[in-house]
Nucleic acid binder design. Structure first.
Lengths: 147, 147
DNA sequence: ACTTGACTTCGACATTACTTGAAGTTCTAG
DNA sequence: CTAGAACTTCAAGTAATGTCGAAGTCAAGT
């Protein structure tokens, strides 16, 4: 198994800690691509590992596959990205990740604050209040559409 | 609509920016509870707003309802929590939220780092590598079980 | 050239998190 | 007291994210 060789679906799945069915599913949904052998079997470029790692990490923090897919369009599907491509990718994702981090930090901090807030009626509780939570059904991936 | 009054399902839903069906669903799944009128209609204590706000925020950052439900067991179902209860709750969630924040920050930082890492073969890329991603199918809510 | 494990597609099934619709009941303003 | 909005339950449907099994094909070692 040469280091420059391509990966079978089984090899990639084992490296990534998921089922082959998941990789086929991602491919069907257009998040990853593969070359095929003469016989029709998938062969993944090694870059698929980085790509799928990103997918899984993003999923774990609440981003849906469609949004992830949209963001991945910046990267070339079939080869490792160039430095420029990667940089563009990273810059595009940054605001979305920061937004998600802010949601989490806000949740954490409001939890801590509310310890002492003693609010009996929630209307007077500006610490833990709906409204900052209901709003985010908007564009969402708009950062990633950039020029 | 007195401030100390209870909320109908419609009022609560409007406040929270979601459908009444979602509240009924949360109740059926045991994440929230309600009193009933003589005629069988739901009446929510105002505290349900805070509770559901928490549920929605937690969902947005990738936590499943089951885990959220587990974590909410620390809080009284039918009334506003005391200061002690809230503190216990906040402390129990803290590590889980921090973990989720670390996942996000790690993702963000690896994106930034990989810009210059120039790794051609992913095996030599310790910056963006699977393994830190595959591992977390474990207990998960174990922090929340504590004494 | 076999054999055997890994691969292929395809369709059905599973789970999570709800929404929708039907058929009927309750609450409240006038 | 009554009209109509808002509520009730229950069953079925939907979307996202996969998994599983069957039936058959490919690839790699001996």
């Amino acid at each position: 198994m040469d280091l420059n060789e391509q990966l079978t679906v089984g090899e990639a799945a084992e490296r990534l800690g998921l089922r082959t069915s998941a990789l086929r599913f991602y491919e069907e949904r257009g998040l990853i691509t593969s070359a095929r052998t003469a016989g029709g079997q998938r062969r993944y470029a090694r870059d698929v590992l980085r790509r799928v790692s990103f997918i899984r990490a993003a999923q774990q923090v609440g981003l849906p596959l469609d949004e992830i897919k949209e963001g991945l369009r910046i990267l070339p599907a079939d080869r490792a990205p160039t430095k420029d491509e990667w940089e563009h990718f990273a810059k595009a994702w940054r605001p979305r990740l920061d937004e998600q981090i802010r949601t989490l930090e806000g949740l954490r901090d409001r939890l801590a604050l509310c310890i002492g807030c003693g609010c009996q009626t929630l209307d007077s509780c500006h610490v833990f209040n709906p409204g900052d939570v209901a709003g985010r059904q908007g564009p969402g991936a708009r950062y990633l559409a950039g020029p």
